[in-house]
Design a protein around this nucleic acid. Structure first.
Length: 417
RNA sequence: GCGAUCGUGGCGAAGUGGUUAACGCAUCGGUUUGUGGAUCCGACACUCGAGGGUUCAAUUCCCUUCGAUCGCCCCA
C-alpha cells in the first residue's frame, strides 16, 4: 500500500495554493500599512512554554498537543497556537527594551491533535498579529480593525465582529462565583455538557446552544467589571466607532485560552458548516510576565486560514490569477528545436512566461497543450521560418498568425501584452 | 475522546456471491506525416483503501485496521 498523508493534514496543490498566496499577500499588505513587522519563530518550542502560556488546564495543553522528547530528552511540543512563541521571542530578544510599541505579525502552521471536521485540521494555518507594550485602548481597536480590514480586502462579505470585555482576573473571579451561585440550583436542569462545563470553565456555559431559556436573569460579566475595565472597554468601542468598524457587543463571548484579559473579540462568518468563528483574539496583560519577561501588556488575534479559504470558496470570491502562460513555443525539426532551447531561455530571462513541449509530441498535441495552458500566443518555428529568421506567432484567441523576426519576439510580446 | 455516513481507473460515478468490472469526463492515438477549442473511430482498472475470515467462489457477507466527510466536545 502506498503511504498516505497523516490524518488531518492536507496537500495544497497547484490550482488551490493560489488562494493561499492571495490570502497571505493581502494580509501582509494590510499589516504593512498598519505598520506591523513580520516575526518568524520556531514551529516547536519547549512544552513548558505552552503549559505556562496557554494554560495547563486548557484542552489544548491537556490533550491536544503534539508532545515528544527529543534525543536530548528535552520535552518538545509542536506549537498549538502562535501567541506563546511570539511572546517568548519578544521576551528572549528583549524587544521590550525598544522605545516603541512592538507591532508584530506571523503566519504559519499550527498543530493540534483533534478529530478533523469541516474547517478543522491537525495541521492548520494561522495568520496573526501581536502588539506589545501599550495598554491604550486605541491599540485594541487598531488590532480589531486590522483583522477586519484583511477580511474586507479579501473580498469577504458579512464578517461580523463580536467584542466583549472579560475584565481582569480579580473581577472575573468575583463574577465566576456569582455565576456559579446562579447555576448551581439549576444544575440538574442543564444539559450534560453544561454540567461538566460548570466544573471546568463555568463562563463557557453561557455559550450553550440547547439550554438558553435557563439563562434568563443570569448575571452578566459586564456588570461585574470594575471602573478601569469598564472605561477601557468603553474607549475601545469609541475607537471602533470612530473608525466605522461595525461591531456587536456579545456579553457572553468567552475565549478558550486562559491568558485573555479585558478585550476579547471574534470574527464570524456563515456558511462553512458547524463552525462560524474564522478568527479571534484579545488582550493578554499578564502573559508576558508569566512567560518570564518584565510585565508588558499585549493584544493580538489569530485568523484561521483554512476557514478563510472555506469562506472565500463559499462566497465564490474570484482569486486574481498570476503567472499565466504568455507564449508556448513549438519547434519542428532538429535545427528548430535547438533554436527553441535558446529562445525559450531568452524569453524567460526577459520576463516572459514561456513554455514548450518535453514529450516529443506532434504538432496537434502541442497545440492542444497550449490550449489547455491557456497560452496567449503560440510561436511556431520550422525550417521555413528558420530560413527566414522569423517565427510564426499565433494569437490563440483570434487565430491570427503573423511572422515575427526571431530577435524581436520578446519586444513583440511585450508590446502586445 | 464519542457518534453517523463513506472508501471502485487521473476525476466523477454504476454494479453483482461466480465466464470479459457499466457509463461520463479527462488523457493518448487515428481520421489530417506543420496548427488548438467541434464531430467521428480506437486505446485506457492482472482490479474494486489495507489485512484477515466465511465460502467451491468475494469488489460484493463478517471482523479488524487505515483514511475521508459531517456532527458533538473544544477551537482557528
Amino acid at each position: 500500500m502506498s503511504i498516505q498523508k497523516p490524518k488531518g493534514t492536507q496537500d495544497f496543490l497547484p490550482g488551490s495554493v493560489e488562494t493561499w498566496q492571495y490570502i497571505e499577500k493581502t494580509a501582509r499588505d494590510v499589516c504593512r500599512r498598519f505598520h506591523y513587522k513580520e516575526i518568524r519563530t520556531p514551529i516547536f518550542e519547549h512544552t513548558e512554554l505552552f503549559q505556562r502560556g496557554v494554560g495547563e488546564t486548557t484542552d489544548i495543553v491537556e490533550k491536544e498537543m503534539y508532545t515528544f522528547q527529543d534525543k536530548g530528552e528535552r520535552w518538545i511540543s509542536l506549537r498549538p497556537e502562535g501567541t506563546a512563541g511570539v511572546v517568548r521571542a519578544y521576551v528572549e530578544n528583549k524587544l521590550y527594551g525598544e522605545p516603541d510599541v512592538s507591532k508584530l505579525y506571523y503566519t504559519g502552521p499550527m498543530f493540534r491533535y483533534e478529530q478533523p471536521q469541516a474547517g478543522r485540521y491537525r495541521q492548520f494555518h494561522q495568520f496573526g498579529v501581536e502588539a506589545f507594550g501599550a495598554t491604550d485602548p486605541a491599540i485594541d481597536a487598531e488590532v480589531i480593525a486590522l483583522g477586519y480590514t484583511i477580511y474586507q480586502e479579501l473580498g469577504i462579505n458579512g464578517v461580523r465582529v463580536e467584542v466583549n470585555s472579560v475584565g481582569n482576573p480579580a473581577s472575573r473571579a468575583v463574577y465566576r462565583e456569582a455565576l456559579l451561585g446562579f447555576l448551581l440550583p439549576k444544575k440538574q436542569l442543564l444539559c450534560k455538557d453544561c454540567q461538566s462545563r460548570m466544573e471546568r470553565n463555568p463562563l463557557r456555559v453561557l455559550d450553550c446552544k440547547v439550554d438558553q431559556h435557563h439563562f434568563i436573569g443570569v448575571p452578566e460579566l459586564l456588570d461585574y467589571l470594575d471602573e478601569e475595565c469598564l472605561s477601557h472597554f468603553a474607549a475601545v468601542k469609541k475607537h471602533l466607532a470612530d473608525m466605522e468598524i461595525p461591531y456587536e457587543v456579545n456579553p457572553r463571548l468567552v475565549r478558550g485560552l486562559d491568558y485573555y484579559t479585558h478585550t476579547a473579540f471574534e470574527y464570524k462568518a456563515e456558511g462553512i458548516g458547524a463552525i462560524d468563528t474564522i478568527g479571534g483574539g484579545g488582550r493578554y496583560n499578564g502573559l508576558v510576565g508569566q512567560i518570564g519577561g518584565n510585565d508588558q501588556p499585549g493584544i493580538g488575534f489569530g485568523i484561521g486560514l483554512e476557514r478563510t479559504v472555506l469562506v472565500l470558496a463559499a462566497q465564490e470570491v474570484a482569486i486574481p490569477k498570476e503567472g499565466e502562460l504568455q507564449v508556448y513555443l513549438i519547434g519542428m525539426g532538429e535545427a528548430a528545436e535547438q533554436e527553441i532551447t535558446k529562445l525559450l531561455y531568452r524569453l524567460r530571462r526577459d520576463g516572459i512566461v514561456a513554455e514548450t513541449d518535453y514529450l516529443g509530441r506532434k504538432m496537434k498535441a502541442r497545440m492542444k497543450s497550449a490550449d489547455r495552458f491557456q497560452a496567449k500566443y503560440v510561436a511556431i518555428l520550422g525550417d521555413d521560418e528558420l530560413a527566414a529568421g522569423t517565427i510564426a506567432v499565433k494569437e490563440m484567441s483570434t487565430g491570427e498568425q503573423t511572422p515575427v523576426p526571431l530577435t524581436q519576439l520578446t519586444d513583440w510580446i511585450k508590446a502586445r501584452g
